[in-house]
Nucleic acid binder design. Structure first.
Length: 684
RNA sequence: GCGGCCAUAGCUCAGUUGGAUAGAGCGUCUGGCUACGAACCAGGAGGUCGCAGGUUCGAGUCCUGCUGGCCGCACCA
């Protein structure tokens, strides 16, 4: 871990800049710390002298020289020198650096993040059909964000929002009742004996066609939706059953990928517990929304869309936010001002309204709470809770029910097509005067997953494979897409073949377990290796490949590092703790002098940067930063693995320091893989 | 029309508080298993960073304009 070194350097250099040039902390440039391109130049580099050159009327090189001369001894730092071009280069004390980290003296910590309760909402799949590949990007990104935050010491609550009262559930209910003519009892029997989520997948596509064949049938959908919203009759009971059962299917699918949740929040509970009514009162009193009495939106409660906010962050210039309350005035001034309907003229609330209520609740601003019930068992054996409207089913405030909601920061993991609506949420908070909450309300947006042409063809979607675009869009509505479980199954099957071929001594169970771990690494790495703003053209062959830039490549590096210690034990009778202990007495030249030493050390230094990389990943909300880092580190290790033999090395000093490098890389890569939700098999 | 995102090697992508010679995977060509496991490694070829201005000691990165592509801007969610 490198951040403690950064902190030490910033502290001391800040002092030096003050005493040398009379610069107060506020007057100093941010002390950017980077890694020089080659180890011979140093281990850390600071370019602040360039920035100060003008203000101090001195050449960067002179500043760097003066600072270097004034720094004095610093723990863990071998020397600091000014480069001819003006960089200040820092050389670390290599052997003590690695010893301290292997001894566990330097763990994660020292970051600058807000360590207060944070809610991350992700997954939120409509509970009406099987999860598909597109959903996996959401869940993989969201879960990795959660792990990154927790690694950084932030307490996180993971929520999965379940839209059990929406049109998509209604559509499947329509399919069962009107196309398949099934009773609730028959549907229950079906669910008990089939892949229910797959059945609903197909049924949903049929319902879409059924509507298209006769548009008048859309009235049935409207009636069914109304019945579900009001909890009336067979349709409502069937809707509840479908949602519950499909959610359990989704949980199983996600659990296969090491993804789970603290709480399921059900939209139906938001309705039944009148969360909206409460939020509505607040917004009305505040003037944030008002009844439109003129024009096409007559009879609707609408919210003024603030153009300043529409541009991005709800950053507050005092001029921009003070008069927000009087938006109730006529639209006289704003030629391009818009209104968003929150409550329809028929009195029903839109999705935005429900979301506003939910967002208020997440921040503890609603003055109301759900009841809670145990819903399922989590991966680690703990209880997954779900919201409920019924106090009788609730476990109350005792029995170990955590205090849900009431967070200081909220991340909503939702695809970028919903950016506009997510901005409305921020605006609603800001308009209410909850400026801080608006600022800490973050839309974690990402682009969609499409299919490559080859994969689209492979799945038989020929008609959709237009040639003018580099990818084919998936559509749950048309049943066009790759189901998550199918993909996971194929990955496991493929990996099983490989593992079986390479490890004849493994039992079938061991093969399967190993293949599963490899499949998870492959899939989850693929889902996070691209930056959020990129559309992924999913290609089955590329995803199934375990070579090159992949999760399994990283796992393979860790397995090899582990094997070194197995062999060391076998041939030299030395285990990892003994080896680490021996580092204090053996010569250090293998890591301190010469080209080979520089290259060995470079791998160690890179391994130490995990905490720095995690901080960057969180600051930029870009899990791909971690993925790329883990791959590069594995790559560095793999190269070193060929160049620096351990077990076959005769020199005890070289052997020990090389092994120490392997031990540290192994630990850091294992942590990095954990952050993308992947375990490391013992063999592969 | 307004707003957001995207444009870097043949293909897919990194390059993240502006910094030292623009990197990686795939593909392609050459070489390496008498093994700490070749799911690997070494090396070659491959780039006017969409275009034009601007800011700066320094721009793939920041600003302005433009071009091309995608997505939003519902009394759907």
């Amino acid at each position: 871990m490198i951040l403690p070194v950064h902190a030490l350097l910033r502290q001391r250099l800040g002092d030096v800049l003050t005493s040398l040039y009379g610069l107060a902390r506020e007057a100093q440039p941010t002390l950017v710390i980077e890694v020089p391109p080659r180890r011979a130049l140093g281990d850390l580099a600071l370019p602040f002298a360039f920035e100060l050159a003008r203000a101090l009327r001195k050449a960067p090189r002179v500043i760097a020289q003066e600072v270097a001369a004034a720094v004095g001894p610093l723990e863990g730092v071998a020397r600091i020198e000014a480069a001819p071009n003006g960089y200040l280069n820092v050389f670390l004390d290599r052997a003590p650096f690695l010893r301290a980290r292997l001894a566990g003296d330097v763990g994660p910590g020292g970051g600058t993040l807000l360590r207060e309760k944070t809610i991350v909402e992700h997954t939120a799949i409509n509970p009406n059909k099987a999860a598909h590949i597109g959903h996996l990007r959401n869940s993989a990104m969201g879960d990795t964000l959660v792990r990154l935050l927790r690694f950084s010491g932030v307490p996180v609550e993971v929520q999965n929002y379940i839209d059990d009262t929406g049109v998509q559930v209604a559509d499947v209910v329509v399919g069962f009742l009107h196309i398949e003519q099934q009773s609730l009892a028959q549907v229950e029997a079906l669910a008990a004996t089939t892949r229910f989520d797959y059945h609903c997948w197909d049924l949903y596509a049929r319902v879409t066609e059924w509507y298209e064949a006769d548009k008048s049938r859309l009235a049935i959908r409207a009636a069914t939706l109304h019945a579900i919203e009001h909890g009336e009759g067979e349709a409502a009971r069937m809707g509840a059953f479908v949602a519950d059962h499909i959610v359990r299917c989704h949980l199983k699918t996600m659990a296969r990928l090491n993804i789970d949740y603290d709480l399921l929040t059900w939209e139906g509970d938001i309705l039944r517990l009148q969360f909206w009514a409460t939020a509505f009162d607040i917004l009305k009193k505040n003037g944030s929304i008002y009844l439109q009495d003129d024009g096409p939106l007559t009879g609707c409660w609408v919210m003024q869309i603030d153009d300043d906010l529409a541009h991005g962050d709800a950053r507050a210039t005092p001029a921009a936010d003070t008069p927000a309350g009087d938006a109730g005035g006529e639209a006289a001034e704003g030629e391009d001002s818009k209104e968003k309907v929150i409550v329809r003229s028929n009195g029903t609330v839109t999705y935005v309204g429900k979301d506003i209520a939910n967002q208020f609740w997440k921040f503890g601003l609603l003055g109301k709470d759900f009841h809670y019930r145990p819903f399922a068992t989590r991966i680690d054996g703990a209880t997954l809770f779900a919201s409920t409207s019924d106090a009788r089913h609730a476990t109350g405030g005792h029995d170990g029910v955590p205090h849900f909601g009431d967070a200081r920061a909220v991340y909503n993991v939702i695809d970028s097509r919903q950016s506009y609506l997510q901005r409305l949420l921020k605006q609603a908070l800001a308009a209410m005067g909850y400026r801080e909450q608006a600022d800490r309300s973050t839309h974690f947006a990402y682009e969609m997953v499409a299919l490559s042409h080859a994969t689209a063809r492979e799945f038989g979607f020929v008609a959709e494979a237009e040639s003018d675009r580099p990818f084919v869009e998936v559509s749950g509505r048309k049943g066009l897409g790759v189901k998550a479980d199918d993909l996971i199954d194929r990955l496991i099957a493929k990996a099983s073949g490989e593992v079986g071929r390479r490890n004849a001594s493994l039992t079938p169970d061991e093969v399967r377990e190993t293949a599963h771990r490899i499949a998870v690494a492959a899939l989850r790495y693929f889902m996070v290796k691209f930056s959020r703003g990129k559309i992924i053209a999913f290609d089955i062959d590329e995803a199934l490949s375990f070579e090159g830039e992949s999760g399994p490549y990283i796992q393979y590096a860790v397995v090899r590092a582990a094997n070194i210690f197995t062999k060391l034990q076998e041939r030299h009778g030395i285990d990892e703790p003994a080896l680490i202990a021996s580092l204090t007495t053996l010569p250090e030249t293998a890591i301190t002098s010469g080209t080979d030493a520089d290259d060995l050390w470079a791998i160690v230094l890179e391994a130490a940067r995990l905490d720095e990389v995690v901080e960057t990943a969180v600051r930029t909300l870009e899990p791909s930063v971690l993925a790329k880092y883990a791959f590069a580190l594995a790559q560095g290790f793999s190269a070193g693995y060929h160049r620096f033999p351990v077990v076959n090395e005769d020199d005890a000093g070289a052997r020990a320091w090389r092994a120490a490098m392997a031990a540290y890389v192994r630990r850091q890569l294992t942590s990095a893989l954990e952050l993308i939700g992947s375990d490391v098999p013992a063999r592969m």
